[in-house]
Amino acid sequence: MCLLLTACAAITATLLWYFRDADKDLRLGFLALMYWGAALMWTVDGFFCVAEGEPFLDLSANDALLGLVIVVCGLIVWLLSLLIRDPRQKVLPGIRRA
């Protein structure tokens, strides 16, 4: 489930990057690359699991919860990078106004 959820997140982020992030303001390319990297790594891990006689996908509820935690962690990293890079120049003026 972890692999499936990360792959779904990667596909969603890629589609959003392609259709909604023409000015690269949202740094969705970074989010998509992060999820794709993880999805590829878990795919490799899945093949090694099969070689050891384990199933390719772990469909347990615990692994689904882990998948959700991982997707949320990816979103947090992306949000932090967005706030630090601040491509729309909104963070510093906002802090000054507050």
Partner: peptide, 12 residues
């Protein structure tokens, strides 16, 4: 980005 991002999520 793929390597750092993927490694971070794998570390989680």
């Amino acid at each position: 980005k793929m390597l750092w991002g993927g490694s971070f999520l794998l570390a989680i």
